[in-house]
Design a protein around this nucleic acid. Sequence first.
DNA 1: CTGAAAGCGCTTACAG
DNA 2: CTGAAAGCGCTTACAG
Lengths: 362, 362
Amino acid sequence: MLSYFPNFPVPKPMKPKASTPLRSTADFARHVGLARTTVSRVLNGQPGLKQKTIDRVQRALAETGFTPNAHALHLKGKRTAMVGICVEDLLTPPAVRKLASLQKLLRDRGFSSLIEVFAPGKGREVVRHFLSMRVEAVVFIGHFHREEIEARIGELIAHGTPHLVIDHFGLKNAHTVSLDRAAAMAAVVDHLLGLGHRTFGLLAIAKAPASRYDRLTGIQAALRAHGLNFAGCTVTLDPLHERDNDFDYGRKLAGSFLQLAHRPTALVALNDEIAIGALRGLQEAGLNLPRDMAVTGFNNQPIAAMTTPTLTTVNQNIDTTIATAAEILVAQLDAPPRAKPMVRMITGELVVRESTGPARTA
Amino acid sequence: MLSYFPNFPVPKPMKPKASTPLRSTADFARHVGLARTTVSRVLNGQPGLKQKTIDRVQRALAETGFTPNAHALHLKGKRTAMVGICVEDLLTPPAVRKLASLQKLLRDRGFSSLIEVFAPGKGREVVRHFLSMRVEAVVFIGHFHREEIEARIGELIAHGTPHLVIDHFGLKNAHTVSLDRAAAMAAVVDHLLGLGHRTFGLLAIAKAPASRYDRLTGIQAALRAHGLNFAGCTVTLDPLHERDNDFDYGRKLAGSFLQLAHRPTALVALNDEIAIGALRGLQEAGLNLPRDMAVTGFNNQPIAAMTTPTLTTVNQNIDTTIATAAEILVAQLDAPPRAKPMVRMITGELVVRESTGPARTA
DNA sequence: CTGAAAGCGCTTACAG
DNA sequence: CTGAAAGCGCTTACAG
């Protein structure tokens, strides 16, 4: 870490490794008994070398475990083949799945990944670190503080470094790929409307950050298409409990919904965790699901097929998202910077399971 | 990526960025109107500079977004402050939690993390890449092919690069921190014995890779302490289904156990996923849990508190593991290489919930 | 504060 | 195949 980035500890100079004999190609060439130039040629697979020489070098390489210094290579202009990935956190399963998928895809194309958690307020340092490492592109996965990420993207564009944002829709000038959450939520609500539901509890959806408002848009659109008024048929109790977006938050929210004089017949949750917590909360109170209440999740995590009842939810189609991400990155790597940001929407898929059934006729 | 690692694509030379004006401190110094040397002093916080000069440089730094080339810094001997992390995969929740926790801890100490998935057969490339990047240490998280990881660790030791293995116990000469799975499993079985259980179905435990045999050791020890014979009171049906270690594998296994003429009264699973799948499988067949069958998991993932019944499982105490990992790393960074490998065991914690109850007296 | 110089570990012409 | 040289972007004495 560079010391002139204020919040990082001052680095001590690297102490020489006592037991490492071969630090440079010069050392190594001496060890093999060849010229530096010749060794370099072998290492880079250049033509015009005797097979015998090549074998000699390869053998010594294997024996000594000598590794040329990547930093010197990059200084000489060799591409770094590194991509910086900023991830919102490493604890949200869908975000980690995207990270895993992207990392593998990049690896298969010969890129290594520098991965950092983009904590609020730390974005500047993270991106500067990536730039100092001369990464060939920076990818953001997740939702971030809007102004902070827009500032970072501005810097990257000024630097001529390609970027891509996965999931955070609606950022100015940003290349983006994200799930069409509006359409997905509309599909969820449509499904519930078709089952006769007319009153909906929204779990952790109503007061979402601006970038997530598209979920609300979708819900509103679906209701409007059925001639229903959003305010009249939705309820949110989000502020009643400390918001965590986890199982327990869903459980507590479900408990609160049971206190209402007029309960909604369906609960629509931000994610599978909240939905599963709600299932549990409702069952603890003695409700028979889905007869007494419909519940929907989001993300289609594997656990959604294992709960009782199994959970109706939305599949994000992560593979499609990442394949599209690769396209957008490649487009930038191969071509000059473009004026118009590339923005792609991925279509989710409603997965109907047991947690949604016909609305109880009161 | 270096081209002389056979399996990687040949790198193309990096094309110069058209729109990046300031590529070096020389450029930047010219832009600010100061000498390279002066700029370098400011960047490194050296004394003897007028505040006015410092401010001038800092302002220009902020305005231009100039970032000094980390590779050149490292060439000059500045430490890389990088740690390479090899992770078994990015889809196993406890492994990802360890990764997240370790990454944060390293970040807080000023290290950045190079993260790679250590796929079987790819270990050599991954470690060589880390070495070429001159990382200050390499950490392995998970279980690996024994010979492959031992070979890698041998290389690291020869290189004088510190290493640490998290979770893979019993490797030759390796600094290791891992959960005491034997003790944890003994605690699970003890608990079940205390409830009167005498016959146990083992789910994905019996034929585990060598490094996981410690679970079996623990089970055997607990049974022996109660005067019971392992072979006589355990059953495994692992080979009946394609092994996935996920929900569905547990569900299928549970179904197979129900076919047995003499069913065990308790199912002991490798992880929470398999246990939860088993809960589901048993309930689908109409069993009343835990009355008709006890089930235990492993890892204490959040979902374990949300299933019906909630799941008895083992907490890994990941924070302790990672704190210990940090100690072992620091010990190596600060001191000369030591002859004896450091090996630490972390104690897990049995978490009793609803999925285990008194054995049904047949 | 400036400027010229050396050197970190590499690659790449260039002459032998 | 060898060897001497230049240069990538930095830092660090050293003399002005």
